[in-house]
Design a binder for these strands. Structure first.
Lengths: 314, 314
DNA sequence: ATCGCTCGTGAGAGCGCTCTCACAGATCCG
DNA sequence: CGGATCTGTGAGAGCGCTCTCACGAGCGAT
């Protein structure tokens, strides 16, 4: 009744509140949860190592905006990073047991069926990034990765570069695949076929970008432009380029993806494809909240636009 | 009974598990919480703006280690950042209502009585950093801030610097005060009084460190060494020094505090006092978990040692 | 004055789990 | 072989809330 129903008279409500105050009464939320089925918490789940979660500003940006959006809705965020299968199992029990009302799932790999299992257990789930499998039945918000890859590659091509390579993300993630698809599409739009020796597999990390570039350069010393599938990878690309005596932005131009805050602080400042990280986090959270409210006519997919921000590396 | 009591026979347990599996039964955790009083969650609460929480690697490091430590104990972390009073109120209701078994509280300011209120409501709380008030009754883990401030200042003094200044942290936080105390103590150990024109108030941030240095230099153009109360502040100090035409590490030597990962990547690499961030987070979490278990003879205060890591700015 | 209506209030069931307690059956002792 | 002890099992209370339902008071209409 402390919930503040409409049906109680004014003075009764006040009396009760005063009394509650006096004995410093605090409602037991577990009891409430038991009957209402609502826990007023949602989970923010990242399927990565702690290392990557905390090294990549993308995840941090998503966490930040999700936390903010959840707070304005008056709920709390349960933050979990799962690496090992037993972590996933434990989380599943926690979520299925009703400790959270829904889950925000980041960085789904390969054919992991976690979202399907969560939904089957009645826990609404919203993904960050288009899933590789089950696209029809899952809910997600994503940036326009194909468009972004195309945008970056086209810019490189149009500026007169002849051997435009790409350092990809992990291919077991849709974002990695899509950005590569964008690259291919831009190259093919010129009527050429894609030269596979120009695509080098990375994993979104700086170290991965570095290694992929070294391998690429070994194979194709003549590359004069590189589209890196993430900013972090681009940092690794730049380092590799320097180490092999190339001038970044001159001998080889570079474009990254994400526009994390560090991109502008680089020397030289990184040209990159900006994806609206905060907007992505907010959109995911709002969608999940709406689903929890049971609102109808919600779109299963939301794709946010990206834009090229020109700085000095291309 | 699915909890796995000792008192049930082997085959009965198996039968039940098989049946549970068959109908995909999932225990309702809210019901369990209602009777046991345990929610298997603990809160990680930061009293800062989102901006600072996500800009300062110290907080991120604490979050990371707390998340890891909580996961190995099989619990979940509720991550909250509170700025406004209503956030605090909302969190209080959430915690007092039994949705968390304890709270890890970071960045307590001034005489905020949140920890006392939490404890009064029966929610065990462990602080990061010695509280300004109620030290006797609160539980906390902290780094040796006084010792660190002394270490840095003494090093500057011993290397022959004549006008050793300090850019402090916020003085409404114990860490800010303590590091300043360490500075004073090192200066006084030489038999001199502290020249107050050499202490400039900052706030642990880069912008604050920059502003404090500009003001300091304006007052005392002759400073030849600065102890900054945080690495982020030290970055601001370095920038201000450069902007005013001084050579860092030569005209003016600089020592920071924290040893965040970025410190080593600076140009030149920052000499700093390392505090064991991961160990701090782990110690807090373990202490809280032990308190929740009701273990006795736990120390109310834990102070971890710091060390000077010499790089190139001093 | 009587009837029917609305509005506010109080009682009580039920959410799904854990834990205690009592009992039935098995085991052991003298 | 009877009684005492032990082990495993089942029944039932109770955790603290929300929600429904029935009832009593107050009101306007007849």
């Amino acid at each position: 009744m402390l919930r503040g129903d409409a049906k109680v008279s004014e003075h009764a409500r006040e009396a009760v509140h005063a009394a509650a105050e006096a004995i410093s009464y605090v409602p037991n939320l577990a009891a409430r949860t038991l009957v209402t089925g609502r826990s007023d918490s949602i989970a923010f789940l990242v399927e990565e190592t702690e290392e990557r979660m905390f090294a990549d500003p993308f995840f941090l940006g998503m966490l930040r905006s999700a936390q903010e959006a959840v707070a304005v809705a008056g709920l709390q965020l349960v933050f979990t990073v799962v690496n090992r299968p037993e972590d996933q199992q434990r989380f599943l029990a926690y979520a299925a047991g009703g400790h959270v009302d829904g889950v925000l799932l980041l960085s789904l790999h390969g054919r992991d069926r976690l979202p399907q299992r969560l939904e089957a257990l009645g826990v609404p789930t919203v993904l960050s990034g288009r899933p590789l499998s089950g696209r029809r039945r899952l809910w997600y918000v994503d940036a326009d990765n194909v468009g972004g890859g195309r945008l970056a590659t086209a810019h490189l091509l149009e500026s007169g570069r002849r051997h435009v390579a790409t350092v990809t993300g992990p291919l077991d993630m849709c974002a990695g695949q899509d950005r590569l698809t964008g690259y291919r599409s831009a190259v093919e739009a010129l009527g050429r076929g894609v030269d596979e020796s120009l695509v080098s597999i990375g994993d979104f990390t700086q170290a991965g970008g570095h290694a992929a570039t070294i391998a690429l350069l070994d194979r194709r010393p003549d590359v004069d432009a590189i589209f890196a599938a993430s900013d972090l990878a681009a940092f690794g690309v730049v380092r590799a380029l320097r180490e092999t005596g190339r001038r970044v932005g001159e001998d080889v131009t570079v474009i990254g993806f994400d526009d994390i805050p560090e991109a502008a602080d680089q020397e030289p400042p990184l040209t990159t494809v900006r994806q609206p990280i905060a907007a992505l986090g907010t959109a995911m959270t709002r969608l999940l909240l709406d689903r929890i409210e049971g609102r109808a006519d919600l779109p299963r997919r939301t794709v946010l636009p990206v834009e090229l921000v020109r700085r000095q590396t291309a």
